[in-house]
Write a protein that binds this DNA or RNA. Sequence first.
DNA 1: GTCTATATCATGATAGAC
DNA 2: GTCTATCATGATATAGAC
Lengths: 227, 227
Amino acid sequence: MSLRAVKPLNETQTRILDAAEELFMQHGFEGTSMRQLTAKAAVNLAAVNYHFGSKDALIEAVFRRRLDPMNAERLAELDRLELEAAGKPLAAEALIGAFIGVSLAMIEDGRGGGRNFVRLLGRTYTDPSKTIRTLLGHMYAQTMERFRAAFARSLPEVPREELNWRLHFMFGTLSYTLAATDAMNLIAGAKPEDRYDARQLRARLIDFLAAGLLARDAASASVKKAA
Amino acid sequence: MSLRAVKPLNETQTRILDAAEELFMQHGFEGTSMRQLTAKAAVNLAAVNYHFGSKDALIEAVFRRRLDPMNAERLAELDRLELEAAGKPLAAEALIGAFIGVSLAMIEDGRGGGRNFVRLLGRTYTDPSKTIRTLLGHMYAQTMERFRAAFARSLPEVPREELNWRLHFMFGTLSYTLAATDAMNLIAGAKPEDRYDARQLRARLIDFLAAGLLARDAASASVKKAA
DNA sequence: GTCTATATCATGATAGAC
DNA sequence: GTCTATCATGATATAGAC
Protein backbone atom coordinates (compact mmCIF):
# COMPACT_ATOMS: atom_id res chain seq x y z
CA MET A 1 0.00 0.00 0.00
CA SER A 2 2.23 2.77 1.27
CA LEU A 3 5.02 4.02 -0.88
CA ARG A 4 7.76 4.14 1.69
CA ALA A 5 7.25 0.58 2.88
CA VAL A 6 9.48 -0.48 -0.02
CA LYS A 7 12.97 -1.41 1.06
CA PRO A 8 15.87 -0.23 -1.09
CA LEU A 9 17.03 -2.96 -3.44
CA ASN A 10 20.56 -4.18 -3.87
CA GLU A 11 22.01 -5.04 -7.26
CA THR A 12 21.26 -8.75 -7.06
CA GLN A 13 17.62 -8.07 -6.27
CA THR A 14 17.36 -5.58 -9.10
CA ARG A 15 18.85 -8.02 -11.59
CA ILE A 16 16.41 -10.69 -10.46
CA LEU A 17 13.42 -8.36 -10.81
CA ASP A 18 14.54 -7.21 -14.26
CA ALA A 19 14.97 -10.76 -15.49
CA ALA A 20 11.69 -11.78 -13.90
CA GLU A 21 9.59 -9.12 -15.60
CA GLU A 22 11.03 -10.01 -18.99
CA LEU A 23 10.58 -13.76 -18.57
CA PHE A 24 7.16 -13.49 -16.94
CA MET A 25 6.10 -11.31 -19.84
CA GLN A 26 7.40 -13.83 -22.38
CA HIS A 27 6.40 -17.13 -20.79
CA GLY A 28 3.95 -16.35 -18.00
CA PHE A 29 4.44 -17.00 -14.31
CA GLU A 30 3.99 -20.74 -14.41
CA GLY A 31 5.97 -21.05 -17.62
CA THR A 32 9.06 -19.42 -16.15
CA SER A 33 11.41 -21.58 -14.09
CA MET A 34 13.82 -20.48 -11.41
CA ARG A 35 16.65 -21.89 -13.50
CA GLN A 36 15.81 -19.76 -16.52
CA LEU A 37 15.30 -16.78 -14.30
CA THR A 38 18.50 -16.98 -12.27
CA ALA A 39 20.50 -17.81 -15.39
CA LYS A 40 19.22 -14.70 -17.17
CA ALA A 41 19.85 -12.56 -14.11
CA ALA A 42 23.34 -14.08 -13.78
CA VAL A 43 22.78 -14.85 -10.12
CA ASN A 44 22.86 -18.09 -8.24
CA LEU A 45 19.96 -20.49 -8.34
CA ALA A 46 19.35 -20.04 -4.63
CA ALA A 47 19.31 -16.25 -4.76
CA VAL A 48 15.60 -15.86 -5.43
CA ASN A 49 14.64 -17.86 -2.39
CA TYR A 50 17.18 -16.09 -0.26
CA HIS A 51 16.14 -12.57 -1.26
CA PHE A 52 12.42 -12.94 -1.82
CA GLY A 53 11.45 -16.13 -0.02
CA SER A 54 9.59 -17.91 -2.82
CA LYS A 55 8.51 -17.61 -6.40
CA ASP A 56 5.11 -16.20 -5.39
CA ALA A 57 6.72 -13.53 -3.25
CA LEU A 58 8.93 -12.64 -6.20
CA ILE A 59 5.85 -12.14 -8.38
CA GLU A 60 4.41 -9.74 -5.85
CA ALA A 61 7.71 -7.85 -5.64
CA VAL A 62 7.81 -7.49 -9.42
CA PHE A 63 4.48 -5.70 -9.40
CA ARG A 64 5.08 -3.70 -6.29
CA ARG A 65 8.31 -2.19 -7.53
CA ARG A 66 6.63 -0.52 -10.50
CA LEU A 67 2.95 -0.31 -9.71
CA ASP A 68 3.15 1.60 -6.45
CA PRO A 69 5.12 4.48 -7.99
CA MET A 70 2.94 4.41 -11.12
CA ASN A 71 -0.24 4.79 -9.13
CA ALA A 72 1.30 7.45 -6.94
CA GLU A 73 2.11 9.38 -10.10
CA ARG A 74 -1.44 8.97 -11.37
CA LEU A 75 -2.85 10.32 -8.14
CA ALA A 76 -0.39 13.21 -8.11
CA GLU A 77 -1.46 14.15 -11.61
CA LEU A 78 -5.10 13.90 -10.65
CA ASP A 79 -4.41 16.18 -7.66
CA ARG A 80 -2.74 18.65 -9.94
CA LEU A 81 -5.62 18.64 -12.42
CA GLU A 82 -8.22 19.06 -9.70
CA LEU A 83 -6.30 21.89 -8.12
CA GLU A 84 -6.15 23.69 -11.47
CA ALA A 85 -9.84 23.14 -12.11
CA ALA A 86 -10.73 24.68 -8.75
CA GLY A 87 -13.84 22.62 -8.14
CA LYS A 88 -15.11 22.34 -11.68
CA PRO A 89 -15.48 18.85 -13.17
CA LEU A 90 -12.55 17.80 -15.33
CA ALA A 91 -12.72 17.06 -19.04
CA ALA A 92 -12.85 13.34 -19.77
CA GLU A 93 -9.86 13.74 -22.07
CA ALA A 94 -7.74 15.07 -19.22
CA LEU A 95 -8.72 12.20 -16.95
CA ILE A 96 -8.02 9.60 -19.60
CA GLY A 97 -4.66 11.20 -20.27
CA ALA A 98 -3.72 11.16 -16.60
CA PHE A 99 -4.61 7.53 -16.27
CA ILE A 100 -3.11 6.07 -19.42
CA GLY A 101 -0.18 8.44 -19.81
CA VAL A 102 1.81 6.90 -16.99
CA SER A 103 1.67 3.44 -18.57
CA LEU A 104 2.29 4.66 -22.09
CA ALA A 105 5.37 6.62 -21.13
CA MET A 106 6.93 3.36 -19.96
CA ILE A 107 6.60 1.77 -23.39
CA GLU A 108 9.57 3.80 -24.50
CA ASP A 109 11.69 2.75 -21.53
CA GLY A 110 13.40 -0.06 -23.40
CA ARG A 111 16.67 -0.33 -21.48
CA GLY A 112 15.20 0.25 -18.05
CA GLY A 113 12.80 -2.63 -18.49
CA GLY A 114 9.69 -0.48 -18.20
CA ARG A 115 8.51 -1.72 -21.55
CA ASN A 116 8.73 -5.32 -20.39
CA PHE A 117 6.78 -4.42 -17.32
CA VAL A 118 3.88 -2.73 -19.04
CA ARG A 119 3.55 -5.63 -21.46
CA LEU A 120 3.52 -7.98 -18.50
CA LEU A 121 0.97 -5.77 -16.81
CA GLY A 122 -1.25 -5.76 -19.89
CA ARG A 123 -1.27 -9.53 -19.90
CA THR A 124 -1.79 -9.82 -16.19
CA TYR A 125 -5.01 -7.81 -16.17
CA THR A 126 -6.65 -10.86 -17.72
CA ASP A 127 -4.93 -13.45 -15.56
CA PRO A 128 -7.60 -15.67 -14.02
CA SER A 129 -5.58 -16.65 -10.94
CA LYS A 130 -7.30 -15.52 -7.80
CA THR A 131 -4.02 -14.66 -6.10
CA ILE A 132 -2.95 -12.38 -8.91
CA ARG A 133 -6.35 -10.78 -9.23
CA THR A 134 -6.52 -10.02 -5.53
CA LEU A 135 -3.00 -8.62 -5.60
CA LEU A 136 -3.75 -6.25 -8.46
CA GLY A 137 -7.09 -5.31 -6.96
CA HIS A 138 -5.44 -4.19 -3.75
CA MET A 139 -2.66 -2.33 -5.49
CA TYR A 140 -5.13 -0.39 -7.64
CA ALA A 141 -7.88 0.14 -5.10
CA GLN A 142 -7.40 3.75 -4.05
CA THR A 143 -6.34 4.91 -7.49
CA MET A 144 -9.35 3.35 -9.14
CA GLU A 145 -11.74 4.79 -6.62
CA ARG A 146 -10.43 8.33 -7.05
CA PHE A 147 -10.55 8.11 -10.83
CA ARG A 148 -13.96 6.48 -10.87
CA ALA A 149 -15.32 9.36 -8.80
CA ALA A 150 -13.62 11.94 -11.01
CA PHE A 151 -15.08 10.35 -14.15
CA ALA A 152 -18.51 10.30 -12.54
CA ARG A 153 -18.25 14.04 -11.90
CA SER A 154 -16.91 14.63 -15.40
CA LEU A 155 -19.71 12.67 -17.07
CA PRO A 156 -22.84 13.27 -14.99
CA GLU A 157 -25.11 12.43 -17.92
CA VAL A 158 -23.84 8.84 -18.12
CA PRO A 159 -25.69 6.54 -15.68
CA ARG A 160 -23.50 5.02 -13.02
CA GLU A 161 -23.78 1.44 -14.26
CA GLU A 162 -23.16 2.41 -17.86
CA LEU A 163 -20.13 4.39 -16.76
CA ASN A 164 -18.74 1.38 -14.92
CA TRP A 165 -18.96 -0.64 -18.10
CA ARG A 166 -17.34 2.07 -20.17
CA LEU A 167 -14.48 2.34 -17.73
CA HIS A 168 -14.17 -1.45 -17.91
CA PHE A 169 -13.93 -1.16 -21.69
CA MET A 170 -11.34 1.57 -21.31
CA PHE A 171 -9.10 -0.65 -19.19
CA GLY A 172 -9.54 -3.35 -21.76
CA THR A 173 -8.33 -1.16 -24.55
CA LEU A 174 -5.37 0.01 -22.50
CA SER A 175 -4.54 -3.47 -21.29
CA TYR A 176 -4.53 -4.95 -24.77
CA THR A 177 -2.61 -2.05 -26.23
CA LEU A 178 0.07 -2.43 -23.58
CA ALA A 179 0.26 -6.20 -23.94
CA ALA A 180 0.64 -6.04 -27.70
CA THR A 181 3.32 -3.38 -27.97
CA ASP A 182 5.24 -5.23 -30.61
CA ALA A 183 2.54 -5.90 -33.14
CA MET A 184 -1.00 -5.19 -34.15
CA ASN A 185 -1.40 -8.93 -34.10
CA LEU A 186 -4.55 -9.39 -36.03
CA ILE A 187 -4.59 -6.40 -38.34
CA ALA A 188 -3.41 -7.68 -41.68
CA GLY A 189 -1.76 -4.73 -43.40
CA ALA A 190 -0.40 -3.09 -40.26
CA LYS A 191 3.22 -2.31 -39.59
CA PRO A 192 4.69 -3.03 -36.14
CA GLU A 193 7.32 -1.47 -33.85
CA ASP A 194 8.27 1.74 -35.55
CA ARG A 195 4.74 3.09 -35.25
CA TYR A 196 4.53 2.43 -31.52
CA ASP A 197 5.35 6.00 -30.64
CA ALA A 198 4.05 6.73 -27.16
CA ARG A 199 3.00 10.31 -27.80
CA GLN A 200 1.06 9.51 -30.93
CA LEU A 201 -0.44 6.43 -29.36
CA ARG A 202 -1.54 8.52 -26.40
CA ALA A 203 -3.33 10.95 -28.68
CA ARG A 204 -5.00 8.17 -30.65
CA LEU A 205 -6.15 6.41 -27.51
CA ILE A 206 -7.54 9.57 -25.95
CA ASP A 207 -9.58 10.31 -29.07
CA PHE A 208 -10.90 6.79 -29.26
CA LEU A 209 -11.67 6.40 -25.57
CA ALA A 210 -13.14 9.85 -25.03
CA ALA A 211 -15.56 9.26 -27.89
CA GLY A 212 -16.53 5.92 -26.39
CA LEU A 213 -16.98 7.27 -22.88
CA LEU A 214 -19.10 10.15 -24.13
CA ALA A 215 -21.21 8.06 -26.51
CA ARG A 216 -24.90 8.73 -26.55
CA ASP A 217 -26.46 6.18 -24.23
CA ALA A 218 -28.57 4.15 -26.63
CA ALA A 219 -27.74 0.73 -25.25
CA SER A 220 -29.00 0.86 -21.71
CA ALA A 221 -32.15 2.69 -22.80
CA SER A 222 -33.09 0.15 -25.47
CA VAL A 223 -32.34 -2.81 -23.23
CA LYS A 224 -34.35 -1.40 -20.37
CA LYS A 225 -37.25 -1.21 -22.75
CA ALA A 226 -36.75 -4.82 -23.86
CA ALA A 227 -36.49 -6.12 -20.28
CA MET B 1 -8.21 -23.37 -42.93
CA SER B 2 -11.09 -25.14 -44.58
CA LEU B 3 -14.10 -26.05 -42.54
CA ARG B 4 -14.58 -29.60 -43.68
CA ALA B 5 -10.99 -30.63 -43.00
CA VAL B 6 -12.08 -31.21 -39.40
CA LYS B 7 -12.47 -34.87 -38.56
CA PRO B 8 -15.46 -35.87 -36.44
CA LEU B 9 -14.49 -36.26 -32.80
CA ASN B 10 -15.22 -39.23 -30.63
CA GLU B 11 -16.28 -38.88 -27.01
CA THR B 12 -12.80 -39.23 -25.55
CA GLN B 13 -11.47 -36.49 -27.78
CA THR B 14 -14.38 -34.23 -26.90
CA ARG B 15 -13.85 -34.76 -23.20
CA ILE B 16 -10.16 -33.96 -23.56
CA LEU B 17 -10.88 -30.76 -25.50
CA ASP B 18 -13.51 -29.65 -22.98
CA ALA B 19 -11.17 -30.20 -20.06
CA ALA B 20 -8.33 -28.53 -21.93
CA GLU B 21 -10.16 -25.31 -22.66
CA GLU B 22 -11.22 -24.98 -19.05
CA LEU B 23 -7.77 -25.69 -17.63
CA PHE B 24 -5.92 -23.64 -20.23
CA MET B 25 -8.24 -20.76 -19.41
CA GLN B 26 -7.58 -21.12 -15.69
CA HIS B 27 -3.85 -21.88 -15.61
CA GLY B 28 -2.47 -21.12 -19.05
CA PHE B 29 -0.89 -23.58 -21.45
CA GLU B 30 2.36 -24.04 -19.60
CA GLY B 31 0.65 -24.08 -16.24
CA THR B 32 -1.57 -27.01 -17.17
CA SER B 33 -0.12 -30.49 -16.89
CA MET B 34 -1.19 -33.59 -18.78
CA ARG B 35 -1.97 -35.24 -15.46
CA GLN B 36 -4.38 -32.49 -14.38
CA LEU B 37 -5.91 -32.50 -17.81
CA THR B 38 -6.46 -36.22 -18.22
CA ALA B 39 -7.73 -36.48 -14.64
CA LYS B 40 -10.35 -33.77 -15.25
CA ALA B 41 -11.36 -35.37 -18.54
CA ALA B 42 -11.53 -38.77 -16.84
CA VAL B 43 -9.39 -40.38 -19.50
CA ASN B 44 -6.11 -42.17 -19.34
CA LEU B 45 -2.87 -40.27 -19.07
CA ALA B 46 -1.73 -41.58 -22.44
CA ALA B 47 -4.91 -40.58 -24.25
CA VAL B 48 -3.79 -37.07 -25.19
CA ASN B 49 -0.70 -38.32 -26.92
CA TYR B 50 -2.61 -41.12 -28.58
CA HIS B 51 -5.38 -38.92 -29.94
CA PHE B 52 -3.60 -35.65 -30.62
CA GLY B 53 0.08 -36.48 -30.75
CA SER B 54 1.43 -33.93 -28.29
CA LYS B 55 0.46 -31.14 -25.98
CA ASP B 56 1.15 -28.53 -28.68
CA ALA B 57 -1.05 -30.34 -31.16
CA LEU B 58 -3.77 -30.42 -28.52
CA ILE B 59 -3.55 -26.65 -28.11
CA GLU B 60 -4.04 -26.21 -31.83
CA ALA B 61 -7.00 -28.59 -31.80
CA VAL B 62 -8.63 -26.64 -28.98
CA PHE B 63 -8.62 -23.47 -31.06
CA ARG B 64 -9.49 -25.11 -34.33
CA ARG B 65 -12.60 -26.79 -32.99
CA ARG B 66 -14.24 -23.48 -32.08
CA LEU B 67 -12.52 -20.80 -34.09
CA ASP B 68 -13.07 -22.20 -37.57
CA PRO B 69 -16.85 -22.35 -37.14
CA MET B 70 -16.88 -18.96 -35.41
CA ASN B 71 -15.09 -17.27 -38.25
CA ALA B 72 -17.23 -19.05 -40.82
CA GLU B 73 -20.25 -17.64 -39.05
CA ARG B 74 -18.75 -14.15 -39.06
CA LEU B 75 -18.14 -14.34 -42.78
CA ALA B 76 -21.62 -15.70 -43.43
CA GLU B 77 -23.11 -12.80 -41.53
CA LEU B 78 -20.96 -10.34 -43.44
CA ASP B 79 -22.10 -11.93 -46.71
CA ARG B 80 -25.68 -11.55 -45.61
CA LEU B 81 -25.23 -7.89 -44.66
CA GLU B 82 -23.47 -7.05 -47.91
CA LEU B 83 -26.13 -8.78 -49.94
CA GLU B 84 -28.82 -6.76 -48.17
CA ALA B 85 -26.92 -3.52 -48.66
CA ALA B 86 -26.68 -4.14 -52.40
CA GLY B 87 -23.35 -2.40 -52.91
CA LYS B 88 -23.77 0.41 -50.42
CA PRO B 89 -21.22 0.66 -47.56
CA LEU B 90 -22.40 -0.87 -44.32
CA ALA B 91 -22.99 1.01 -41.10
CA ALA B 92 -20.12 0.61 -38.65
CA GLU B 93 -22.58 -0.58 -36.02
CA ALA B 94 -23.64 -3.48 -38.21
CA LEU B 95 -20.05 -4.52 -38.86
CA ILE B 96 -19.14 -4.34 -35.20
CA GLY B 97 -22.19 -6.39 -34.33
CA ALA B 98 -21.32 -9.06 -36.87
CA PHE B 99 -17.80 -9.37 -35.56
CA ILE B 100 -18.35 -9.31 -31.82
CA GLY B 101 -21.77 -10.98 -31.73
CA VAL B 102 -20.41 -14.43 -32.46
CA SER B 103 -18.04 -14.31 -29.48
CA LEU B 104 -20.52 -12.71 -27.14
CA ALA B 105 -23.18 -15.30 -27.83
CA MET B 106 -20.79 -17.95 -26.52
CA ILE B 107 -20.51 -16.28 -23.13
CA GLU B 108 -23.90 -17.69 -22.28
CA ASP B 109 -22.96 -21.21 -23.33
CA GLY B 110 -22.03 -22.33 -19.83
CA ARG B 111 -22.62 -26.06 -20.06
CA GLY B 112 -21.28 -26.51 -23.56
CA GLY B 113 -17.98 -24.95 -22.59
CA GLY B 114 -18.26 -22.06 -24.99
CA ARG B 115 -17.84 -19.64 -22.13
CA ASN B 116 -14.57 -21.26 -21.13
CA PHE B 117 -13.38 -21.02 -24.69
CA VAL B 118 -14.08 -17.34 -25.19
CA ARG B 119 -12.36 -16.52 -21.92
CA LEU B 120 -9.39 -18.55 -23.05
CA LEU B 121 -9.50 -16.79 -26.39
CA GLY B 122 -9.56 -13.38 -24.74
CA ARG B 123 -6.44 -14.24 -22.81
CA THR B 124 -4.71 -15.79 -25.77
CA TYR B 125 -4.92 -12.67 -27.93
CA THR B 126 -2.20 -11.23 -25.72
CA ASP B 127 -0.10 -14.37 -25.49
CA PRO B 128 3.45 -13.48 -26.48
CA SER B 129 4.41 -16.95 -27.70
CA LYS B 130 5.33 -16.86 -31.35
CA THR B 131 3.74 -20.24 -32.01
CA ILE B 132 0.40 -19.16 -30.58
CA ARG B 133 0.47 -15.82 -32.32
CA THR B 134 1.19 -17.40 -35.69
CA LEU B 135 -1.54 -19.95 -35.14
CA LEU B 136 -4.17 -17.30 -34.35
CA GLY B 137 -2.93 -15.09 -37.16
CA HIS B 138 -3.50 -17.86 -39.69
CA MET B 139 -6.87 -18.82 -38.32
CA TYR B 140 -8.11 -15.22 -38.47
CA ALA B 141 -6.44 -14.14 -41.69
CA GLN B 142 -9.29 -14.22 -44.20
CA THR B 143 -11.89 -13.06 -41.72
CA MET B 144 -9.80 -10.08 -40.66
CA GLU B 145 -9.07 -9.08 -44.21
CA ARG B 146 -12.71 -9.12 -45.24
CA PHE B 147 -13.77 -7.12 -42.19
CA ARG B 148 -10.92 -4.67 -42.51
CA ALA B 149 -11.97 -3.95 -46.07
CA ALA B 150 -15.60 -3.59 -45.08
CA PHE B 151 -14.72 -1.14 -42.30
CA ALA B 152 -12.59 0.84 -44.72
CA ARG B 153 -15.59 1.18 -47.05
CA SER B 154 -17.86 2.01 -44.15
CA LEU B 155 -15.57 4.72 -42.78
CA PRO B 156 -13.94 6.38 -45.81
CA GLU B 157 -13.22 9.56 -43.87
CA VAL B 158 -10.90 7.77 -41.43
CA PRO B 159 -7.33 7.49 -42.80
CA ARG B 160 -6.15 3.95 -43.35
CA GLU B 161 -3.50 3.99 -40.64
CA GLU B 162 -5.81 5.57 -38.09
CA LEU B 163 -8.42 2.96 -38.93
CA ASN B 164 -5.92 0.15 -38.34
CA TRP B 165 -5.27 1.52 -34.88
CA ARG B 166 -8.93 1.88 -34.09
CA LEU B 167 -9.60 -1.67 -35.16
CA HIS B 168 -6.69 -2.72 -32.97
CA PHE B 169 -8.32 -0.90 -30.06
CA MET B 170 -11.60 -2.58 -30.86
CA PHE B 171 -10.04 -6.04 -30.62
CA GLY B 172 -8.50 -5.00 -27.37
CA THR B 173 -11.83 -4.05 -25.88
CA LEU B 174 -13.41 -7.27 -27.08
CA SER B 175 -10.48 -9.40 -25.95
CA TYR B 176 -10.47 -7.96 -22.46
CA THR B 177 -14.22 -8.12 -22.15
CA LEU B 178 -14.19 -11.79 -23.10
CA ALA B 179 -11.28 -12.64 -20.82
CA ALA B 180 -12.88 -10.98 -17.82
CA THR B 181 -16.37 -12.44 -18.04
CA ASP B 182 -16.61 -13.11 -14.36
CA ALA B 183 -15.75 -9.73 -12.95
CA MET B 184 -15.11 -6.13 -13.73
CA ASN B 185 -11.82 -6.69 -11.99
CA LEU B 186 -10.70 -3.21 -11.33
CA ILE B 187 -13.93 -1.28 -11.05
CA ALA B 188 -14.57 -0.82 -7.38
CA GLY B 189 -18.32 -0.59 -6.96
CA ALA B 190 -19.23 -2.92 -9.81
CA LYS B 191 -21.26 -6.09 -9.51
CA PRO B 192 -20.12 -9.20 -11.39
CA GLU B 193 -21.80 -12.22 -13.06
CA ASP B 194 -25.47 -11.35 -13.05
CA ARG B 195 -24.87 -8.29 -15.20
CA TYR B 196 -22.92 -10.20 -17.84
CA ASP B 197 -25.93 -10.52 -20.07
CA ALA B 198 -24.77 -11.07 -23.62
CA ARG B 199 -27.47 -9.02 -25.34
CA GLN B 200 -27.03 -6.02 -23.12
CA LEU B 201 -23.26 -6.31 -23.29
CA ARG B 202 -23.48 -6.44 -27.07
CA ALA B 203 -25.46 -3.22 -27.16
CA ARG B 204 -23.10 -1.47 -24.75
CA LEU B 205 -20.06 -2.56 -26.72
CA ILE B 206 -21.50 -1.49 -30.04
CA ASP B 207 -22.26 2.00 -28.67
CA PHE B 208 -18.83 2.35 -27.17
CA LEU B 209 -16.91 1.00 -30.14
CA ALA B 210 -18.91 2.74 -32.83
CA ALA B 211 -18.31 6.07 -31.11
CA GLY B 212 -14.60 5.32 -30.91
CA LEU B 213 -14.31 4.19 -34.51
CA LEU B 214 -16.16 7.26 -35.74
CA ALA B 215 -14.32 9.74 -33.53
CA ARG B 216 -13.22 12.98 -35.09
CA ASP B 217 -9.63 12.44 -36.15
CA ALA B 218 -7.82 14.94 -33.95
CA ALA B 219 -4.88 12.75 -33.00
CA SER B 220 -3.24 12.00 -36.31
CA ALA B 221 -3.75 15.57 -37.47
CA SER B 222 -2.13 17.11 -34.40
CA VAL B 223 0.77 14.68 -34.41
CA LYS B 224 1.42 15.18 -38.09
CA LYS B 225 1.74 18.85 -37.30
CA ALA B 226 4.17 18.16 -34.44
CA ALA B 227 6.32 15.79 -36.54
C1' DG C 1 25.49 -13.24 1.18
C1' DT C 2 26.80 -16.51 -2.06
C1' DC C 3 27.45 -20.86 -3.72
C1' DT C 4 27.30 -26.15 -4.58
C1' DA C 5 25.01 -30.08 -3.98
C1' DT C 6 21.08 -32.42 -3.41
C1' DA C 7 16.35 -33.83 -1.68
C1' DT C 8 11.87 -34.49 -3.32
C1' DC C 9 8.52 -34.38 -6.50
C1' DA C 10 6.11 -33.31 -11.07
C1' DT C 11 6.61 -33.04 -15.92
C1' DG C 12 5.80 -34.76 -21.10
C1' DA C 13 6.28 -38.69 -23.55
C1' DT C 14 6.40 -43.59 -24.75
C1' DA C 15 6.78 -48.82 -24.77
C1' DG C 16 4.33 -52.70 -24.51
C1' DA C 17 0.61 -55.72 -22.18
C1' DC C 18 -4.22 -56.37 -22.82
C1' DG D 1 -8.25 -47.80 -27.90
C1' DT D 2 -7.04 -48.15 -23.24
C1' DC D 3 -4.14 -49.11 -19.65
C1' DT D 4 0.21 -49.53 -16.43
C1' DA D 5 4.76 -48.79 -15.77
C1' DT D 6 8.59 -46.28 -16.55
C1' DC D 7 12.11 -43.01 -18.61
C1' DA D 8 14.62 -38.90 -18.78
C1' DT D 9 14.25 -34.38 -17.60
C1' DG D 10 13.30 -30.39 -15.10
C1' DA D 11 10.77 -28.25 -11.25
C1' DT D 12 10.99 -25.68 -6.38
C1' DA D 13 13.22 -25.51 -2.38
C1' DT D 14 16.79 -26.12 1.15
C1' DA D 15 20.97 -27.70 3.88
C1' DG D 16 25.36 -26.69 4.75
C1' DA D 17 30.26 -25.37 3.10
C1' DC D 18 32.66 -21.16 2.38
